[in-house]
Amino acid sequence: MRTTVKDVMTTQVVSVNSSTPFKDIAEALIAHGVSAVPVVHESNYVLGVVSEADLLCKEEFREQCYGDNYQPPLRARLRHRLSQDGGSLRQKAVGDTAAELMTSPAVTVSPRSSTVTAARLMDKHGVKRLVVAEDGYLEGIVSRRDLLKTFVRADSDIAREIREEVLERSLSMETLGVAVHVDQGLVTLSGWMDRRSEVMLATRMTRRVNGVVDIIDKLSWKHDDSTRAGDTFSGPS
């Protein structure tokens, strides 16, 4: 049930090496419709990532410091590269190869990580895609669009997995009194189970099923084994 990055990632990856020139990187981004490419060593070891934003630093720096039509001389470019107050913008603005333009180290995720982990990393670092790497070696790319694939499932498939995989196989509980209804990924669990702990476990595992957007829990239980309050029938959890 747990969807990993490997399940949704793209394995056909457009990459460049450290000596790839600026123009070739830009052409690769445009030709393949991607916003970033990993920079790799000959052995496919990930060195960094070059994104559209990295390339646009050159134009931004030129506009801010010189005007649109001005090309600074080599001495000025070197001076800005070494300047303490120039920062990352100046360094990338004068860069001509992937090694000079890339952001390093790259933000990577393991193919064994969950899609939830990947989504959190994207949000934390403000990126649209992540390099998938194992021990530093390129395995693929995962994008926001790839992560959305986990939610594009038929309601009938989601309901069947909850009944067969969660309730019957994984939990092996008495579930004849449980009804599962799914509408646009919204799962409603209703009916009853024997113990409150079973209800809590069933709802927690249901949330992990691919395609589940949210859960409406209308389950009741006969025995509240979480508080040892006795065998009185309780209301919805």
Rank of each mutant, 00 (worst) to 15 (best):
S88F: 12
A119E: 05
G87M: 01
L147Y: 03
Q91S: 09
S220R: 12
Q84Y: 09
V131I: 01
Q84E: 10
V107P: 08
D96S: 08
M122Q: 02
H181I: 11
D231V: 15
V34N: 00
S190D: 07
D146P: 00
L147Q: 02
S172E: 10
L89H: 03
V34I: 06
N17A: 07
I158M: 01
T108E: 11
S170P: 13
I25G: 04
D225W: 04
R81E: 13
A76K: 10
G185E: 05
P111H: 03
R112Y: 14
L101P: 03
E168R: 13
T115Q: 05
A99K: 14
P111C: 02
S113V: 05
A98C: 03
R228Y: 15
D96H: 12
R207L: 11
Q84V: 13
K222A: 12
D157L: 09
H223M: 13
S15T: 09
H41S: 10
S113A: 08
W221V: 15
V180M: 01
D135W: 11
S113N: 07
R160E: 13
V152K: 09
L56N: 06
L101M: 02
E161N: 06
M1D: 09
L189S: 00
V152H: 11
D183N: 09
S83W: 11
L101Q: 03
D157N: 15
Q184T: 12
S234L: 11
R207P: 07
T175N: 12
E100Q: 06
P105H: 04
